[in-house]
Design a protein around this nucleic acid. Sequence first.
DNA 1: GATGAATGAGCTTTCATTCAT
DNA 2: AATGAATGAAAGCTCATTCAT
Lengths: 197, 197, 197, 197
Amino acid sequence: MARITKAERKKSIISASLKLFSERGFYITTIPDIAQKVGMSVGNFYNYFNSKDVLAKELVMYISQYLGDNIRDINERDISTDEKIYEIVSMYFNIADEKPEMIEYFLRVYLSNREVFSDGCEGMLCVSPFVTEMMMFFNDGVESGDLYDQDFFSAFGLFMGYLGGMVFLFGEKILPEPLENYKESISQNIYNALKSR
Amino acid sequence: MARITKAERKKSIISASLKLFSERGFYITTIPDIAQKVGMSVGNFYNYFNSKDVLAKELVMYISQYLGDNIRDINERDISTDEKIYEIVSMYFNIADEKPEMIEYFLRVYLSNREVFSDGCEGMLCVSPFVTEMMMFFNDGVESGDLYDQDFFSAFGLFMGYLGGMVFLFGEKILPEPLENYKESISQNIYNALKSR
Amino acid sequence: MARITKAERKKSIISASLKLFSERGFYITTIPDIAQKVGMSVGNFYNYFNSKDVLAKELVMYISQYLGDNIRDINERDISTDEKIYEIVSMYFNIADEKPEMIEYFLRVYLSNREVFSDGCEGMLCVSPFVTEMMMFFNDGVESGDLYDQDFFSAFGLFMGYLGGMVFLFGEKILPEPLENYKESISQNIYNALKSR
Amino acid sequence: MARITKAERKKSIISASLKLFSERGFYITTIPDIAQKVGMSVGNFYNYFNSKDVLAKELVMYISQYLGDNIRDINERDISTDEKIYEIVSMYFNIADEKPEMIEYFLRVYLSNREVFSDGCEGMLCVSPFVTEMMMFFNDGVESGDLYDQDFFSAFGLFMGYLGGMVFLFGEKILPEPLENYKESISQNIYNALKSR
DNA sequence: GATGAATGAGCTTTCATTCAT
DNA sequence: AATGAATGAAAGCTCATTCAT
């Protein structure tokens, strides 16, 4: 008899809330909304997460882990720095396409509603798996002589700001073409910006 | 006797609400908060703006106009494209420094709470003065042979995503140095990314 | 045109909530209950009191003031100590009869739900007008040689514990006779207990 | 192998809930709180007590029995009435010292949350072992000529109101000295109040 | 007897907006 | 134009109790 485990139930709350938060925003989405989408009572929701804020924080950590894992896979491959850039852009846009809620949550909920994360996610605390891997990527690139040795945060801001901006424009249906089609040019732009001079 | 005109009163609501929205977020800020900061009654607030959402939309347009004007000034100067890039970056960071509420509102309120702007600010409607000027800048650069001729939105995403990302990192107190110090390297990175190949 | 002032409205909340709290208890009584009894919306209640707890605290202070004023009137009269005792007992039982909510609130809400009053009513903070007057009564009695000079709190505990106990028994409909009929014997007992030896 | 009997399990619920109710109050204490303190599941709690209210009622009866037994021991001794008074006061204060939850429960839960006890503990139903013994004490005292023959409830109110009041003041940390030190004076006061005239 | 996930009604509190003055 | 008391719907969260296992 297949029973639904507590872990599975928790996973389904994460999945449902991620979608709702990213589509409607943090404050518009209510606990009843989430409970209903999961098919569970409001009261029971609180057996899994102590508060709406706690859920929000777990979601960032979940996404950060997911992105971090994906970047690590790329970092560990034996390919050139410009290929890595292309792979990261590609992976990011693929996620934006197939699991848009992940990227959208990052952009719309985590980056914007700082008051929700101020207690417990100070600085980059809840996002470190992801940031750490980006740091690895950058350091490797500099070490191999491919990238120009500059302040990490400037490179990071370029890379992630750029990708976030594109996903935002895409989400707003402003882009004339699908994200897919931008992979090449964007990777090229990023490489041109960061390569050793 | 100097009377306070209706326009001045409206201006002071804009000013106060811009600060509150950018510091606390759209949903956390209440109309009573705004009224109190302006020194006006809640009821009277509604003589100037029909709803909280309408206010929010006017604010984006106000900021977009402001940024657009500043960029036009730069566009009209007789300087090279890479100098223009530096000037735009410089201007953007100066605003982030001196009137942080403008940039923060853009990033934290406008870009994130799309539901608020969905009716009336579709696409880039409320933001066109700003986007138009960026388009002018880009077209001029391409025409003069300085910039590589690519999809405008890719260039736009890079430019604005980058700057937004840096201001965000700065706001989160993650940057090791003041924004000021990044002007050079960031302008350089942007130019390298966009210049003709 | 007779307008209802804000102070009058506040007074009517005090009056209604005092009755409800004393009859049903603090936790059973809800804000909607109170609002309904006053004939006001739930939201508007919060224009008068910031929270249920704050209301509870204002109620004790209100009662303490009321009792204190009554005792002072008696203290200031030119009568013997045993007559004062009789007058205090009499006043207390009259209130218990005519405005039972006052005494009941004291016994059932204030004395019992300490968690509600722990922040702001520490010690005897919210009850000092009343306690102070009892202290005056006792000191005068000792000074005049009528009362035995003992620890004030022992005398206070006897006096108030006794009266509270009787009102409780009365409220529980356990007393075979109306409170009225006990005034004499109780005053006598108190005097016998406290008089100088 | 020593098995934990059902009676022992029940006893441990009584013990744990008595402490929690007396410390935190009836409504603040939750069934999960109690179950956790006992080390039992929430569901299992309901195998021992059908509801929170039922538990509350059993607790009063338990305490009443306990106090009643103690008073009977004193009543049966061959000592004078004033010595009995001292012994009762002494016993009461000792309990207040060593098992404060018993007295506190009486004062804070039973006497105050009448709605909980209204169905099943009407009048003195749940408290009769205790009241009966106090009645015995009083009747004996009157019969022996030591106590003034007055309404029992007036004497009872004095005695128990006084003791309850002192324990309350003690619990509020208002008393300048330990309860212990008041035994003498309080017994004296009670005797003076009740003795035959 | 024992478990603890699940229920759902109900609580306190908030806030955009209205409207009589 | 200006006031602020009033509304009421809705939010986050709690908890006694049940029940399938």
